[in-house]
Nucleic acid binder design. Structure first.
Lengths: 128, 128
DNA sequence: TTAACTGTTACGCAGCGTAAAAGTGA
DNA sequence: TTCACTTTTACGCTGCGTAACAGTTA
């Protein structure tokens, strides 16, 4: 499978796929012509990458923690539908991530409250 | 007031102050030696910039919408403690921002839920 | 030949951190 | 002189978008 087809089948841009490769999240073979050649498993791999990026993990974190082949337990691929245990080394990491996420939520909720207030203020003024 | 003092008094880095100037959010005078010279009002101006950045506005949005001197109404400086009406032109903008923020919150809440589940799974496995 | 795909290289964005090389002021 | 402060210039980071220029393939 060439890069274009993988892009179509995952909905991820060609640019992103090359970027993931640069970050070593994907390691396609190369044909005689130099074209990247992906095997079908790359599809779920890409979906997993997207999923973890959506969780707020950076590419290097995905590489270090999630792909962690050295831990030798099947955490990857993961599309969010199957939940499985995290290896002990990752527990602290996920706890930190959780704290980060909750801090971000708190910050955004403050912003939301403030903007709502201003919009309300504006409505009052407009109706007077 | 030189840039270093403004940095100390606002808690904002010198680099950030220069960046705000590059983005035209600050326009200090220049001394004979070429040093930037800020008047005291710059302090609250910087605080306001930080506040709006915290709301998720970009520097250009802050310049366009918040500083909007062309609207000729006192929206700046604003530190979040004083609520005042938004001019009509800005209402749509803030509504969009609000929608953005709520989408981000929803996304982060999904991430939070997922991570919590995985941590829970791990606890179960560990206790079995 | 042409059109569609692929390759590499590289600049742009946002909000800075950080370092380099050089002038200024007490 | 030295030390702290200032200046400008510029590269790095993150996850790509978007060319540009060139080879490949149907």
């Amino acid at each position: 499978m060439n890069i274009g087809e993988l892009a179509r089948r995952t909905g991820v841009s060609v640019r992103s796929l090359r970027y993931y490769e640069e970050k070593q999240l994907l390691t396609p073979q190369r044909g005689e012509n130099g074209y990247r050649s992906y095997d079908p498993s790359a599809i779920e791999r890409v979906r997993a990458i997207q999923f973890y990026l959506g969780l707020g993990l950076s590419t290097s974190e995905i590489l270090d923690v999630v792909l962690c082949s050295e831990h030798d337990h099947e955490t990857f691929p993961c599309d969010g539908t199957t939940n499985q245990a995290i290896c002990p080394e990752e527990v602290g990491f996920y706890q930190d991530k959780l704290a980060e996420i909750e801090a971000q939520i708190a910050s955004l909720e403050k912003a939301r409250t403030y903007i709502k207030q201003r919009l309300d203020q504006t409505r009052k003024v407009a109706s007077v």
